[in-house]
Structure formats: structure tokens, C-alpha cells
Amino acid sequence: MKNRKKSLAEFFADRWALFFLVAEIVFFAIVSRGFLTPRGIQIIFFFGTSVFLLSVGETFVIITGGIDLSVGFVMGFASIVAAKLIVVFTESGMAPAAAILVGMVLTFIISLLPGLINGSLVAFLKVPPFIATFSMIGISHGVSELLIEGVPAKNLPHLANVIGNGHLFYYARGKGMSIFSRPELERGEHVLELLPNIVIITFILIAVFSFILKRTRYGQHTYAIGGNVDAALRSGINVKRHLVTVYMVSSFFAGAAGVIYMLQYVTGKADAGAALLLDGIAAVVIGGASLYGGKGTIWRTILGALIIATLETGLRIRGVPTFDKYILVGVILIGAVLVDQIIPERVEEE
């Protein structure tokens, strides 16, 4: 690590995603009024929550060399389960806050199930991850439709909306700071809203799992399995069990995305995450992970997800049809892999 010479080009190539993000922000700041404001930046995160969550879960799976295609539909499934449970609880007389809390916790637990099945198929029956998780798309889609019978879940308590679209801090001139509750405003008064609740929930989850991946034995084993399954097996790692849990992490994050979608849009929809197949995987790959496994970090995935979320918000503020987002994400995805082909292997890990 001493006599390491890195050319300027390598330095940039290694951090291209970061520079790309900065360039993107500068570009939209120039062309879109209102983009580079506290509100604009919070919108990026607010609408990016699904991509952040799905891609972080996907990162675990991709590091082991697998893929999880089912996250979008597991997300839809979870949004419906959460909505249904909360409606049932409130109708049976539970206080809205308790109903939402219990409903969320139960949904988190239920959302482990698709991952358990995916992981068991992959680890024990040796079904290729692509096929196992595609089957899970059909199954979770079917079960979702079965649960709602074609009608989006409705009649959620108002509190869900308050949480889903509320912020942690509000500041209004003359009224001071308030937490969680939006102050009553006179006409013409402005309130500064800071830190959307769902963004906070999202990043708490991401921080916890980023820690697990980076600092714990569990994370180390995840990398080892992706790097060399045989080595992992022979060094005594319980590879099968580990793989099952990795797919459970992924579906847990899909479940979290579903719960947050439910809070945000106050409904549950089977296809809530159907369009996110590209975004979820693209964020991980743009972040530098390899589909062959062994590589990738949460921080870089977040960078990839931010590139996508910024693009989406930037285009939206600009009034450009969001179709263009798909084209650009496709181009950036391919560009990302091309850049990674050019960079030589980094010498150190940390």
C-alpha cells in the first residue's frame, strides 16, 4: 500500500459515480429553478425511498452472486398486507397509532416469507436465482391480487397519511420549531419542512444494514460467498443457511419499501413496485457491484440510487416526461459497466 501510484484518470474513474452525481446536481441546479433548494433536495429523497430500499436489499443478494427479480412485486405485496392489516385493526377498534405500528411490524415479519422461499429454492434445491425469484414474482403478484380482489386497499386511517407525508421538523417564522406536527398557518405564511418521516425510517434501516454488511461477521461471510463459494464452504461457513438469510434481507427491504409506499400513498397496490426492476438493479450496478458477486457496498449503492432519484426529480421539476428517465437510466447503467471494465483492480480494499 505504500508504493501505489494512481494516475489522475484512475482516480476519476474510481469515483466516477460521485462526480457524475455532482455533475448531475449542478446541471439540474442550472436548468431547473427550485431544484437546489431544501425542498427540492428533500423531494429527491422523498420519492427515492423505494429505490433506496430495494437497491440496498438487492445489494446483499448481488454480492453473493445472485439476483432477486421479485423485490418489486414483494413490495406491492407488502403494501397490500400492511394496508389490509391496518384497516382490519382499526375497524376492530384499535387506536390508529397502535394499528399502524402493529400492522407495520407484522408486515415486516410477513415480508420475510418470500425471501425464505426464494432463498430455500436457491440454496437447497439449487434453482438458479433468476428462476426462483421470477417464480416469486408470479406468486407474490397472484397472492396480492387475491388479497385485494382488484380494488386498491382503501380506508386507511388519516394518521397513515400524516406519517407518510409528514416531516420531523417544521419551522415557521414567529411560531418557532415544532416536531412532527405541522403548525397552523395563516394565509401567506410559509413553513420550512425538514426531514420527511419516511426518509428517516428509510435511512435508519439502511444505516443498520450497512453496518451489518461492513462491520460484522455476517457481512464478511456475504462477501466471501460471492467471492468463492468453495472457500466459504470449506472454511466452515454455513453457506446454505447464509444464502437463505440473504434473500430474506432482500425481501425484508422490499417489505419495508411496501410499508413506506403504503404510508406515502395511503393505499396498497399489487404493482406498486413493478416499474422498479430496472431502477433497483441499476442502482446496485451503477454503484460498482458486479453481477458475478463479491463486490459492492451499501454506500456505493446509495450513490447509484441517488443518481437515479436525482434524475427522476430533476426531470420532473423540469417538466420533461418521465419516459426519458428510463432511457437515461438504461444509458447510465450500460455506461457504468463500461467504465468499470476500463478501471483496473484497486489495490486495497479499504
Partner: peptide, 27 residues
């Protein structure tokens, strides 16, 4: 595991951990 460094391979599967704040096991 080619994607891990030298010492991580020496300790592969038997990683040494310590407790953070007496609670959380970290490498």
C-alpha cells in the same frame, strides 16, 4: 476468496470479533 484481503482470508469463517459498546459484535 479473491475479493477479500489477506488477513480476512486467514480468518475466513473464524473471524475475530469485538463488542462495540459492549453490545454489538463487530469485526
Amino acid at each position: 476468496a479473491e475479493n477479500l484481503n489477506v488477513y480476512s482470508n486467514i480468518f475466513l469463517g473464524r473471524e475475530q470479533t469485538k463488542r462495540l459498546l459492549g453490545l454489538i459484535e463487530v469485526l
